[in-house]
C-alpha cells in the first residue's frame, strides 16, 4: 500500500509558487465566464428557435388535430402569431425575454414562468434526492473498492455498478415499480404527491423515481471515486502520512477521502444538467412533472416559446451547477482555490 509513484507534470510545490494574479486580470477572469455564458445562451436560443422550425407541421394543425378544417387552423395560427416570419418571432421573443418576460405557452395558454417554475422546482427536488442517495453510496463504494483493490470486493462493487449503468432507466424503473410498488406495496407508483404534502411525504413519493437515477449514476461515480482514492493512496503525501504513524482511519478520512472526492465533485456538476433536463423517460413513467417532460411535450406540440425557455433554463442550470461544483472543488482543494 505504500508504493511511491509521483504523477508526471509540474509538482504541487511549483504550482503553489505561482505569483497571485494582478487585479485587472482577476476581473477579466471573473467576467470571462459570464460573457461566455451569455454568448452560449444566445446561440442556444437561436439554435432551438430555428431548429424547432424544421419540426413537421404547424402548431395550429397540431393543436386542432388532423381532421380540423384548414380555415380553423389558419385562424388559430394567426391568433397565436405563428404565421409571422420566423426572424420577427425570434426577435420579439428575445426582446421580451431581455425584459424578464418569459412569454406564454402557445398550446397551454399559460404564462411560461408558471409552468416552468413548477417544473423546475420538481426537477430540483428529484435531482437533490437522487444526489443525496447516490453520492454517499458511490463514495463509500468507490473508497472501499480502492482500499480492497483487485480483490473480489473491488471487482463486485465496480463490476456490478458499471453493469447497472447500461440498463435504461425505464427498465430499472419498471422493475422497481413491479417489485417495490405493486409487489411489496412499499412505495406509490406515481411520484406526484397530493397537493400540500409535507417534506417527508414528498421525499417518500420521490424515492421510486430516484431509484433508476441512482442505478444509472452509481457505477460511474463509484468508479471515479475509486480512481481518485487509488491516486491518493499512491501519492507521496499518503506515504508520508502513513510513515508519520497516523492511524489508518485518520489517513483515509483526512488525506485520502478529500482528494478522492475532487474528480467526483466536478463530474457531479455535469450530471446535474442531465438530472434537471434529461429525465423525460423517468418523469413520464412515474408521472412527475419536471423540466424534461415539459420540454418534451413543448417540442411535440411545437410550442416554441415554452420549448425555448425550457431549454434555456436547463442551459443556465447546467452552467451554474458546473460553476458551483468548481467552487466546491475549490473549497476542498487549496490548489484549485489559488488558481
Amino acid at each position: 500500500m505504500t508504493t511511491v509513484a509521483v504523477p508526471p507534470g509540474r509538482s504541487d510545490v511549483a504550482r503553489l509558487a505561482d505569483p497571485p494574479p494582478p487585479p485587472r486580470r482577476l476581473v477579466r477572469r471573473l467576467l470571462r465566464p459570464v460573457v461566455l455564458l451569455l454568448v452560449n445562451l444566445v446561440l442556444l436560443s437561436a439554435l432551438v428557435f430555428f431548429g424547432a422550425e424544421v419540426l413537421p407541421g404547424n402548431i395550429g394543425r397540431l393543436l386542432l388535430g388532423r381532421t380540423a378544417d384548414q380555415q380553423s387552423v389558419d385562424v388559430l395560427n394567426r391568433e397565436l402569431g405563428a404565421d409571422r416570419p420566423l426572424v420577427e418571432r425570434y426577435l420579439s421573443f428575445m426582446g421580451d425575454l431581455l425584459q424578464g418576460d418569459l412569454g406564454t405557452s402557445l398550446a397551454l395558454r399559460q404564462p411560461n414562468s408558471e409552468l416552468l417554475g413548477a417544473a423546475l422546482l420538481n426537477s430540483l427536488k428529484l435531482a437533490a434526492l437522487a444526489f443525496a442517495i447516490v453520492v454517499p453510496l458511490a463514495l463509500v463504494g468507490g473508497v472501499v473498492a480502492a482500499l480492497r483493490r483487485d480483490t473480489w470486493v473491488d471487482r463486485t462493487i465496480i463490476g456490478v455498478g458499471v453493469a447497472l449503468t447500461v440498463l435504461p432507466e425505464f427498465v430499472t424503473g419498471l422493475i422497481a415499480i413491479l417489485v417495490l410498488s405493486l409487489g411489496l406495496k412499499l412505495f406509490p407508483v406515481t411520484a406526484t404527491p397530493p397537493p400540500g404534502s409535507g417534506a417527508l411525504t414528498q421525499i417518500y413519493y420521490l424515492v421510486m423515481p430516484a431509484i433508476p437515477l441512482v442505478v444509472v449514476l452509481f457505477g460511474y461515480l463509484a468508479k471515479l471515486a475509486r480512481a481518485g482514492t487509488v491516486t491518493a493512496l499512491d501519492s507521496d503525501y499518503h506515504r508520508t502520512a502513513v510513515l508519520k504513524g497516523l492511524p489508518g482511519r485518520v489517513v483515509v478520512s483526512r488525506h485520502v477521502l478529500r482528494n478522492a472526492l475532487l474528480p467526483t465533485i466536478s463530474v457531479l456538476g455535469t450530471q446535474a444538467g442531465y438530472l434537471i433536463g434529461g429525465l423525460v423517460v423517468v418523469e413520464i413513467l412515474f408521472n412527475y412533472r419536471g423540466v424534461g417532460s415539459l420540454i418534451f411535450t413543448a417540442a411535440q406540440a411545437k410550442d416554441i416559446p415554452l420549448l425555448e425557455v425550457g431549454v434555456l433554463t436547463v442551459g443556465v442550470a447546467y452552467m451554474l451547477l458546473t460553476a458551483l461544483s468548481d467552487v466546491v472543488a475549490g473549497l476542498l482543494d487549496p490548489r484549485v482555490r489559488v488558481r
Binding site: I177, S181, L182, P188, V189, T190, I284, L285, F286, N287, S293, T297
Partner: peptide, 18 residues
C-alpha cells in the same frame, strides 16, 4: 381526474390502487 402523459403509467397506477 389525474393527468398522465403516457398510457403505461396509467395502467400501473390502476394496478397500484392509485
Amino acid at each position: 381526474l389525474k393527468y398522465y402523459s403516457d398510457m403505461q403509467p396509467q395502467i400501473l397506477a390502476l394496478q397500484g390502487g392509485e
